[in-house]
Amino acid sequence: MRETTARKALSLLDLTDLSDGCDAAAIETLCRQAQTPFGPTAAICIWPRFVAQARGILGEGHAVRIATVVNFPSGDLPVADVVAETRQAITDGADEIDLVVPYRAFLAGNEAAVTDMVTAVKAACPAPVRLKTILETGEIKDPALIRRASDLAIAAGGDFIKTSTGKVAVNATPEAAEIMLTAIKESGKPVGFKPAGGVRTVADAGLYLALAANILGADWASPKTFRFGASGLLGDILAVLGGQAAPAKPAGY
């Protein structure tokens, strides 16, 4: 069972390096790590300034997709700036855009800020580029508001709703995941889900996959509908698949 979960998690992993100290050498390493003996991860998720480098390493049409972040991590940039950031990232070779919604404005009662941002950035993402909307659920906290933010992001055209940036005290939680997965189910739209931050072991991954199966069906989770945002999860996946002892748990994303 652990091996089955590990193989599934590998296929759904956005292998992430959004560390402050990330550099060109780290991107080379990340691109290499994403191509494992057991198959590729779904994507890498990196800062925008490294997208062109990663595209040069991976080439066009590679099995490992390139995701990058915009309006990250604050969620406070003007819409025009975020649209420009998005367009540049796509020009550089990004396949997927992970957008932080203006959650502080939302918490202050400005729902239109979320709708306007997601709508504008979605319009800047030509198919097949996918837009993942980061709600920062650990800062929103209130279950009713997490549900409302989910509904707004879905209605505005987000292809995924994602829990967190990994840059705040509380990131992905099963409680937030259940709310978001239920919002997806009740929307009736083909929207995906991405828990991010704090998913570090195959057991952690299994918990989120079980939630998705319970709410949306056993066959729902695929790379088109479900991703894990993590930097440390790959080590545990490889340990399980290789029959090795699990590595020490990392402290980061």
Results as ranks from 00 to 15, higher is better:
M1T: 14
R2C: 10
E3K: 14
T4C: 08
T5F: 13
T5Y: 12
R7P: 01
S11Y: 00
D14P: 00
D14W: 00
D17K: 03
D20G: 09
D23M: 07
D23L: 03
A26H: 12
I27R: 00
I27A: 00
E28A: 12
E28Y: 12
C31L: 01
Q33P: 00
A34M: 01
Q35H: 12
T36V: 02
T41P: 06
T41Y: 05
A43P: 02
A43T: 04
W47N: 07
W47T: 01
R49A: 07
A52C: 10
A52L: 14
Q53S: 10
I57Q: 07
G59M: 04
E60W: 08
I66L: 05
A67Y: 09
T68A: 09
T68I: 11
V69I: 14
P73H: 10
P78S: 12
P78V: 11
A80R: 15
D81W: 11
D81Q: 15
V82H: 04
R87C: 14
Q88G: 15
A89L: 11
A89S: 15
A89Y: 10
I90L: 13
I90G: 09
D92W: 08
D92K: 03
D95G: 08
I97A: 01
L99Q: 06
G109A: 12
G109M: 13
E111F: 14
A113C: 14
A113I: 11
M117Q: 03
V118F: 09
A120P: 06
V121W: 08
K122D: 14
A123V: 09
A124V: 12
P126T: 02
P126V: 01
P128A: 08
V129G: 08
V129Y: 11
K132E: 04
E136R: 14
T137S: 13
G138T: 01
E139W: 12
E139N: 15
K141Y: 11
A144M: 08
L145F: 10
I146Y: 11
R147G: 14
R148W: 08
R148H: 15
A149K: 12
A149P: 04
D151K: 05
D151L: 08
I154H: 07
A155S: 13
G157W: 13
D159T: 04
S164Y: 08
T165V: 03
A172K: 03
E175M: 11
E175W: 06
A176C: 03
A177S: 15
E178T: 14
M180P: 05
K185R: 15
G188K: 09
V191Y: 02
F193A: 02
K194V: 00
V199F: 01
R200L: 04
V202F: 05
A203I: 06
D204V: 03
A205C: 03
A205N: 02
G206T: 03
L207P: 07
Y208T: 06
L209R: 10
L211P: 04
N214K: 11
N214M: 07
L216Y: 07
G217M: 03
G217N: 01
A218N: 05
D219P: 01
W220N: 00
A221D: 01
A221V: 02
S222C: 13
P223T: 04
P223V: 03
P223I: 04
P223D: 09
K224Y: 06
F226L: 05
R227C: 01
G229P: 00
L234A: 00
G235Y: 13
G235R: 07
D236I: 01
A239M: 14
A239E: 14
V240S: 11
L241H: 10
Q244M: 13
A246R: 13
